[in-house]
Design a binder for these strands. Structure first.
Length: 793
RNA sequence: GCCGUGGUGGCGGAACUGGUAUACGCGCAUGACUUAAAAUCAUGUGAGAGCAAUCUCAUGUGGGUUCGACUCCCACCCGCGGCACCA
């Protein structure tokens, strides 16, 4: 029989569909296992091989858990709303709605081809009203809880996408989607108060079972700093200048103060500032500067003294000067700092340039020392270690009502409004008399109206603003004329809760099916890319925490276990159009079959490290599939070889361990070794049956086919993972490695578990050993049972 | 600069808690089959020396700990990812 993957795969995919093999009755099953993968955003180019790489890793795990007796729920959907899809439609000059329905078909076709165990009856598409109705519902819940609010602030503006972005969507100064430079702009926007959850988001990282690197990225992003808030009086003014510092112990060394150009103090006391025109010029200049210029570390520090305003250091009542400088950021802390040049590099640089006092308050020989030491020149803090000094000064500040110990986070609130078309309209209405009023839940969804000209215009308002019938409405509260919000929400809002909706797709009158969520949440295993560490993965945790408090989700954390996969590259380089190393999965699936492509992708290396796709490699894997298929012809009724039985059981154990550790590459290597042995020796039905079962997670179609040819009636998925026999795995003999001074000099086959005495005797009687020893006697003999013996001369 | 992660044959990569470095695959070479080629099968394949048995050297670099180090410790170099004047 010839291996025909195209035929086999079509046959089995049809059968799985007809027999509802992977459909899960979410209410009835006994052992729920929620196996999640990151639903793709459907680009028009089609499913990317990188998607397939991630999805197959996830599917292999899901199928393995199925064989362990779990009822595995493996859903899929499309994250189709968003700038990425919209930008593509604009590029090819088609309407996003048309592009969307086309890519949906194409994506689902491709997702069928890869042979995953999806439950196709519970898909979600974020751009359909029956989904985004509930995304809008989520916004209303946030608003009810006081977690959605409007604020005017300096926000990230992408000049190319013509919309604001969240902090998380600015990647080293550039737009996450189009890589254009991002500017700062003062605008009023909708925010979600993720910062309320900063501590919880950080703390739970201690116990959730996630890839460590992703946890570290989130931890750094949240950026907790412990320190103190210190209040500085300004001479002859009723104003308290507050600063945040992580080093209150160095307060005696504070010789000047700096505020950011945006600080309220400057405009408030214009009349008191003697050189205000100079200050004004500096403020204007720093506004024009792009973010890149402003954060360039190599550039010189600039600033202007604020003449006329004198600050008083509360700890010693010394009068110190005040400066405005753009090295102090408005968004962090209080937008003002106490400068301690002797113990902060930036302050030192600034102090030298402006010839300001530098006072050492820590024991050190270094000119600028930023570490911990013992306080000096610090009054009552003298001779205290930094840790102790911090505690003492915070106590002192508290007593005098001049400050307190406090915590500061780098994390900012999530800006969720977007001035674009292809998203869920934010369900809010502005009334002259009532202010902002939420759309009543019964009026959801606020349908996204059809419009031919959906291009963003950069006016700061979304394209929906152009449709009068959409904008003009009545206030739900008082009935007078009012206007709708015309921004749509961030596509990351859509994906922050999709894993909850999978469990609730049949409910048309509620967002979430609480009973099911209780049964299925949290997600048991989530495999995905770490590029979402501070985007989707952070937002989802936040949203779940809120929904947990509202009583919808049983636990605070959405994903019990998360494992990040590395990047798939091709021919040694990042996959990109310009490098013309694009890998089209369809082409390879059509040529070699999905099983071969799956196996090859899983064989590339350690999942965490990513992989390097080489065209030459897939051929080898195809050859292996052909050989596997031919094993059917090797089946006979002879009593199988002992050696083969031992190898079978070793393989079952090894593959099982590798699957649990997500080391698929070594699992496949073990399958190859077994297959090669079967090819050499032949085997009986029972052995090949077991081989088919352990092959099944990786190559489900060929495994089912072999399984059927061997006379089995039900799908392998109803089968259990085979048990290995511990006794059969044991080898009777082992190879004793003889080392002399740590170098291998000989190897002999000996019985298992021989004693040290026996081993010594055997070793010393070897001719080679005698030759190496000469007339010397070993000083020391180290014997490691069932491994080696080392003679130290 | 800080945080994380990696560096092993011609290539992708193995090596669980310190115990045979290079599993498995690709590629290459030789042979079998064939008129020939492809496919398939068999054998070999880290480098160097040697007719050979065998020996020496090799896991980014330099040190160290140990009977023994890809694995542990110290210093440094390079790649990748994140953050970046965060007070």
């Amino acid at each position: 029989m010839k291996y025909n993957p195209q035929k086999i795969e079509k046959k089995w995919q049809k059968k799985w569909e007809e027999e509802k093999t992977y459909q899960v009755d979410l209410d009835k099953v006994k052992k729920p296992y929620y196996n999640l993968m990151m639903f793709p955003y459907p680009s028009a180019e089609g499913l990317h091989v990188g998607n397939m790489y991630a999805f197959v890793h996830s599917d292999v795990y899901g199928r393995f858990m199925g064989l362990q007796g779990y009822n595995v729920f493996e859903p899929i959907g499309l994250d189709g709303f968003g700038i990425h899809s919209e930008n593509y439609a604009i590029k090819i000059k088609e309407h996003i709605k048309d592009v969307s329905s086309r890519t949906e078909k194409n994506f689902y076709k491709q997702l069928h081809m890869i042979g995953n165990a999806y439950d196709w009856t519970k898909t979600v598409e974020t751009y359909k009203p029956n989904y985004y109705k509930w995304t809008q519902w989520l916004f209303l819940k946030m608003y009810e809880k006081g977690l959605a609010y409007r604020k005017k602030s300096s926000v990230n503006w992408c000049t190319s996408c013509k919309t604001v972005l969240s902090n998380e969507q600015v990647i080293s100064g550039k737009c996450e989607r189009c890589e254009a430079q991002v500017e700062k702009k003062d605008m009023e926007q909708w925010f979600w108060r993720i910062t309320n959850y900063a501590e919880k988001l950080l703390k739970n990282l201690d116990w959730i079972d996630w890839s460590e690197d992703v946890k570290t990225i989130q931890k750094n992003w949240i950026g907790k700093s412990e320190g103190a808030l210190v209040k500085f009086k300004i001479k002859n003014l009723e104003y308290i200048l507050e600063v945040f510092t992580t080093r209150p112990d160095t307060l005696f060394g504070c010789t000047y103060m700096v505020v950011c150009p945006e600080h309220e103090l400057l405009s408030k006391f214009q009349s008191k500032i003697k050189n205000y025109s100079e200050i004004e010029k500096y403020i204007k200049k720093s506004k024009i500067k792009s973010d890149i210029d402003r954060t360039d570390l190599n550039k010189d520090k600039t600033g202007v003294e604020v003449k006329g305003l004198i600050v008083i250091n509360p700890v010693n009542n010394k009068e110190i000067p005040l400066y405005v400088a753009d090295y102090v950021l408005s968004g962090y802390g209080t937008g003002a700092i106490m400068a301690v040049p002797a113990h902060d590099e930036r302050d030192m640089e600034f102090a030298k340039k402006f010839d300001l006092d530098i006072i050492k308050v820590l024991k050190t020989d270094e000119e600028c020392f930023v570490g911990e030491s013992i306080s000096i020149n610090s009054g009552f803090l003298n001779n205290l270690e930094t840790k102790k000094a911090k505690i003492e000064i915070i106590k002192w500040l508290g007593k005098k009502k001049l400050g307190k110990g406090t915590v500061n986070y780098r994390l900012r609130d999530w800006c969720v409004s977007r001035q674009r078309y292809w998203g869920p309209p934010i369900p809010m209405i502005e009334c002259k008399d009532c202010g902002w009023v939420p759309v009543p839940e019964k009026d959801l969804p606020v349908l996204l109206p059809d419009m031919s000209d959906f291009l963003p215009d950069g006016s700061g308002k979304g394209p929906l603003n152009k449709i009068k019938e959409f904008v003009n409405t009545t206030c739900p509260k008082c009935g007078s004329p009012a206007k709708r919000e015309t921004d749509v929400s961030d596509p990351f809002v859509d994906s922050s809760w999709y894993y909850l909706r999978y469990l609730s797709t049949e409910s048309n009158n509620q967002a979430l099916d609480k009973k099911r969520l209780k049964k299925w949440m949290p997600v048991d295993m989530y495999i995905g890319g770490k590029e979402h560490s501070v985007l989707h993965l952070l937002y989802s945790r936040f949203v779940t925490m809120v929904l947990h408090q509202l009583g919808y989700v049983p636990e605070e954390e959405p994903f019990k276990k998360f494992r990040a996969h590395g990047l798939l590259i091709s021919e040694g380089a990042k996959i990109s159009k310009s490098k013309s190393n694009i890998v089209n999965p369809d082409k390879y699936i059509n040529q070699y079959g999905a099983d071969a492509v799956r196996m090859y992708l899983m064989f590339l290396g350690d999942m965490r490290q990513g992989g390097d796709w080489r065209d030459s490699g897939i051929e080898g894997m195809y050859r292996f599939m052909v050989r596997i298929y031919k094993l059917i012809d090797k089946v006979d009724d002879k009593k199988p070889d002992d050696q083969l039985i031992r190898l079978l059981h070793q393989t079952i154990k090894g593959v099982q361990n590798d699957l649990m550790r997500l080391k698929y590459n070594t699992a496949i290597a073990k399958l190859m070794i077994l297959a090669n042995k079967i090819q050499e020796l032949g085997c009986n039905k029972e052995i090949l049956n077991k081989f088919a079962v352990i092959l099944y997670p990786f190559a489900p179609h060929i495994a089912e086919e072999i399984w059927e040819v061997l006379g089995n009636k039900k799908s392998i998925f109803k089968e259990k993972w085979p048990k290995y026999d511990k006794k059969l795995i044991q080898e009777k003999t082992w190879e004793l490695i003889i080392q002399i001074d740590g170098k291998v000099r000989d190897k002999i086959e000996v019985k298992k578990n021989i004693s040290e005495e026996e081993a010594k005797k055997i070793t010393l009687s070897q001719d080679k050993v005698k030759k190496w020893l000469g007339n010397k006697k070993p000083k020391k003999i180290i014997y490691i049972k069932n491994r080696l013996i080392n003679l130290v001369v």
